[in-house]
Design a protein around this nucleic acid. Sequence first.
RNA 1: UGGGCCGUCGACUAAUGGUAGGUCAAGUGCCUUUGGAGCACUUUGUCUAGGUUCGAAUCCUAGCGGCCCAGCCA
Length: 583
Amino acid sequence: MNPSNPQTHAAASAQAPPTEARPSNFVRDIILADLQTSKYGGRVQTRFPPEPNGYLHIGHAKAICLDFGLADEFGGHTNLRFDDTNPQKEETEYVESIMQDVKWLGFHWDGLFYASDYFDQLYEWAVQLIKAGKAYVDDLSADQIREYRGTLTQPGKDSPYRNRSIEENLNLFERMRAGEFPDGSRVLRAKIDMASPNLNMRDPVMYRILHAEHHRTGNKWCIYPMYDYAHGQSDSLEKVTHSMCTLEFEDHRPLYNWFIQQLGIFPSQQIEFDRLNLTYTLLSKRKLLQLVQEGHVSGWDDPRMPTLVGIRRRGYTPEAIRNFCNSIGVSKTNGVIELAMLEHFVREDLNKRAPRVMAVLRPLKVVIDNYPENQVEQMDAVNNPEDPRAGTRKVPFSRVLYIEQDDFRENPPKQYYRLSPGREVRLRYGYFITCANVVKNDKGEIVEVHCTYDPATRGGNSPPDGRKVKATIHWVAAAHAIDAEARLYETLFTKEDPNQTEAGQDFTANLNPRSLEVIHDARLEPSLANPAVGERYQFERLGYFSVDRDSKPGRPVFNRTVALKDTWARIEKGAERSQRGKG
RNA sequence: UGGGCCGUCGACUAAUGGUAGGUCAAGUGCCUUUGGAGCACUUUGUCUAGGUUCGAAUCCUAGCGGCCCAGCCA
């Protein structure tokens, strides 16, 4: 693609496969306009700037798709830049995981940078601002600075140190850097306007003293730049043309521009868009950290977590996440996306690629009385009806089988057309069977269902007499079954908005006690004896499952990524509702 | 009650003064060896009130509602 030709976007859009749709949005419109006016010489340069203080989550995925997607669409470039200006919170471990997550999502950065790469340059520029009378060293304490800042409705007042001489400021700032002063004793501030209605412009702090070891610069520095002083200048140094960030930074844009103007450096432009919000989901690093630290989840990669490592372990694909991000749009509205939207995109992707297998989560023993005692037949099963190239496999059939407990009802309700006494159903790829009677234990629970089969329906085909059956159910041959563990998930929180709590409670009050259900005695068809970790399957009629790293040889562990859409469940729920309505 | 931003179907998002469209959700039907998938159809929307205009979701004015900002966090 020719980056100087704004026309190329049309061709790029046309060539993009439908699954990677690139819808229009206001950021894209700004870029389009800038290309038209050649504001940056037809260049598009973006950056994804995470702070390495935690794991990336689905909200970051939206930003990543925007930053990388837009640059890519216009033949531009995207840097990965770690915003590592606070050594007290940042660690190399997070740097590693962030790089892995970005790669896993399918993106490739052009430059790999760190804000800490620019510490020398930032320091020189600070000196330049001091010399221009635009910055000063303040001896006020943090508390005093807060007092002097004023309030939302009242202007602040000048610090008594605001009008120090340039020489004194230069001397003090140099000594701050040299380590002569303790943490918190002084800061460097921009000299702007203590009466500004925008609090960010009331002489913001540029540097603070922090005698802390930095994950990259070690002990070279004991003063560190603040976000506002570092971010725009980093963008400028990288010649970033379009610097996208979330809405809460709108108030910072005047400051972003102020530093760039005072310094007379490359004019990057900041564009703010809406942060992703998802129902039943928390997307705040601080709160996710709390969930991990208080043990509400097993770790950052617990499959219930919205972190990229979590949803990856859950079985989500990068394609599904990208399609989701590209479909939800980008705007400045504060909205909440329904979780169902995300789930739709995993189903859509997995439906096309996941091989189908048969697995029984809650086994109920079925004996086919008229089937030969020791006979085993190898039945042909289609691996993926959506993809003929996936071929077929053999599944053993015999006299004793397991079916799903849900697929049998002694007293079937209306509209239930699975197995029940006297009723005939199809065993998928097996035979038609008819329920003859049930065996109960002392407690009256059904422990065994006895059936007869029709040999004329081998493979599950309709018999010559044209008899039809209303239900097809899945099964596993008892003698050949693989024992497995299955982990089923519900939302981590019971409320659409987990932050909506009674007074005195925090979001943990909304934790869903049923968010994890472990099934210890699932039975799988024999092809699933030793599946590869991370492999994804559709358990027919149940959902998409992926192989967890906790799997042991001969005993796989599966995470349910998402259930299949379940029409019967909806009917049953509706029936319950109308029942309650009557009562 | 200072400043900034935002209000379009239940949710998200298009329409850039000229037919309010798409996706998800919900519902109906068809089809089906997954009550899956697919296909077809349907319901519901421009925050309010004025104004400008041949014509307003779009422009203007005034209300109303929501979000963000008083870290030496990012």
